[in-house]
Nucleic acid binder design. Structure first.
Lengths: 150, 150
DNA sequence: TAAATAAAGGATATAAGGGTCTTTTATTAG
DNA sequence: CTAATAAAAGACCCTTATATCCTTTATTTA
């Protein structure tokens, strides 16, 4: 067993929270009811202040929208709804995830593959292509139709 | 852009080093010449003391072998050569990587899928199955035949 | 205009991964 | 047996992700 139990991941926790929050907003926000950070934090059981930071980051990058003040909160413009999932991952975790070598070797490429290049690339690119073609609205629709828990 | 550029990864750095080191040992160790931590560190440009910790961990888990003293070093027994890559990943990064939900939701499964379950599982399992079937000796052989840089 | 609300922003704290250094233990050569 | 060698082990520090708290700004309602 591993001496120190690592919390291994593909996506950072911030990114995981971001994705869940965005889907939550897509599901709950209406023109008459914007979704507050508190509501999302409660609904998804995510620390509120940490979530706020994440939502700020998404807002600054125009992936979601917000307004301040009473009855303010977060919502998705029509443009936001067309934002693809890979963009959220990119903003939260940086552009490296689907490009960097699994073994961290900078010169790794199809010309100069690392030992696991063949094994890993298919996996990575397959997921990436799916996320690149899936936008927020579509994902939210699937979640709703399949009655998926957030 | 991400405000803080995360070093996103599938495998931890420790795990990346471990995999490269194991292949290095497989390539260089002979009955008359065991491979020292210093040699590996130099050859792979990895911090020596950090690498030592990793090699210790692999040794404790019987994935590689070692002897102390002059002309001591690391090597692979025949049993070690049959160790599959997924075991190394498991020891270094824990058993969660290929089992945990991409969105970190503990209850996620095919019965109760998370929003990205369908997208992620296919490729994750694909990679996992490859690593589960690939042992150290086979990987080292590929690396040698394809003249892959470590 | 004042009070209330909620996001934005900044400063700070905590935990884990990554990395370094020193001491101990085992082995071998002389 | 002694000296040299190299892994094992433990203590420690640095950086980053995660998380919390407090203040500021924008907006709305009374």
């Amino acid at each position: 067993m591993a001496t120190t139990q690592l919390e291994s991941h593909v996506l950072s926790k911030s990114c995981q929270y971001a994705l869940r929050a965005v889907v939550y907003i897509a599901a709950r926000a209406t023109p008459g009811h914007l979704v507050g950070a508190q509501e999302i934090a409660d609904g998804l059981d995510i620390p509120k202040h940490f979530l706020s930071k994440i939502l700020q980051q998404l807002t600054r990058n125009h992936l979601i929208s917000s307004t301040k003040g009473p009855h303010g909160g977060f919502f998705l413009s029509e443009e936001n709804e067309r934002v693809t999932i890979d963009r959220i991952v990119e903003v939260m975790d940086g552009p490296g995830l689907f490009k960097a070598c699994v073994l961290g070797m900078p010169q790794c490429s199809s010309d100069h593959p690392c030992p696991l290049h063949t094994q890993a690339v298919e996996y990575r690119d397959g997921l990436y292509n799916k996320l690149k073609r899936l936008n927020i609205k579509e994902l939210a629709t699937v979640v709703h139709k399949e009655n998926i828990q957030l």
